[in-house]
Design a protein around this nucleic acid. Structure first.
Length: 279
DNA sequence: ACCCGTGTTCGCTG
DNA sequence: TCAGCGAACACGGG
């Protein structure tokens, strides 16, 4: 589930599992129509069959997959996967049970099946004719990817100057910080010691620069932790909360140890912060 | 039963 | 044009 680090791990997994493999057969659940919009599940599945995976990339929270023409022709197909809130790609060997809420399946030529699992159906799977990803509005609208290109503090400051809204809310704009979501926003603000309630336009250039560095540090740390011994998703049940403030309402602040982490609601989403450290 | 949720889009207002 | 805001989508877990 997806913010930049989770999506990056999902893309790395897909690369390891599918790069160079042919999709012998694809299936898509007819009941899960909204995932496959625009278009229909059946059309989606038919378009993938027989194609070989030649590239897997990530931009922001979007995973971009390139599929070559089945007959060696010059007509590639793009596949875009957005994981929504609960989307996940899972690998199953032949014989293993399918996961629940499997909405689409890619049967590869080595006997492996990749399942797209998504209980809440907020994710998207779409095909892109000619693999022309730059023509897709959701991709074209994204700014430079933080992990790929870094975060340009001057560009961020210019954009923030126009935004009266709380900085925490402004950070979720995918045109500004692609891949940043609700967790990274709280984590980045905590590391940068900035109050999430301040207007984005009120931040100084120095503060914006601090924030850019803090977000990037959070991204890299989360990826490094998730990659660990075996590439895994952080939020598996039973695993400990790996974040500094996210999901830690009422706990002692890990920096000052003199205040408790607060939870407030901004733009219909929870924000976690330390009222003593962040100003 | 009730509340919560790592996301996006749509429609409305100013 | 655009910034801002609330509703909607859908389902499982605590």
């Amino acid at each position: 589930m997806p913010e930049l680090p989770e999506v990056e791990i999902a893309a790395r997994n897909l690369r390891a599992w599918a790069l160079g493999r042919r999709i012998d057969l694809a299936e898509a659940e007819e009941q899960a129509k909204r995932i496959f919009r625009p278009g229909r599940p059946g059309t989606f599945a038919a378009a993938l069959a027989g194609r070989r995976v030649t590239e897997v990339r990530r931009v922001g929270k979007q995973i971009l997959v390139r599929l070559e023409d089945p007959s060696g022709g010059a007509r590639p197909l793009g596949l875009i996967s957005h994981l929504g809130m609960t989307g996940k790609w899972l690998r199953r060997d032949g014989g293993e049970d399918a996961p629940s809420h499997s909405r689409a399946r890619l049967h590869l030529d080595d006997g492996v099946t990749l399942h797209y699992r998504d209980p809440r159906l907020f994710g998207r799977l779409r095909t892109v004719p000619g693999a022309r990803f730059e023509d897709v509005p959701e991709v074209a609208a994204l700014g430079p990817d933080p992990l790929d290109k870094g975060i340009d503090p001057a560009r961020l400051a210019t954009a923030f100057a126009r935004r009266k809204t709380a900085v925490k809310v402004a950070m979720l704009d995918q045109a500004l910080l692609p891949g940043v979501g609700n967790i990274l926003a709280s984590e980045g603000l905590f590391r940068a010691r900035l109050d999430p309630r301040r207007s984005a336009s009120a931040l100084s250039r120095v503060e914006v620069k601090r924030l850019a560095e803090a977000v990037l540090a959070s991204v890299k740390e989360t990826i490094a932790r998730e990659e660990g011994p075996e590439v895994a998703y952080v939020e598996e049940p039973g695993t400990e909360n790996p974040f500094l403030v996210y999901g830690r309402e009422g706990e002692e602040c890990p920096r000052c140890r003199r205040e408790t982490i607060r939870r407030i609601v901004q733009g219909q989403r929870s924000t976690f912060f330390c009222p003593r450290c962040q100003e």
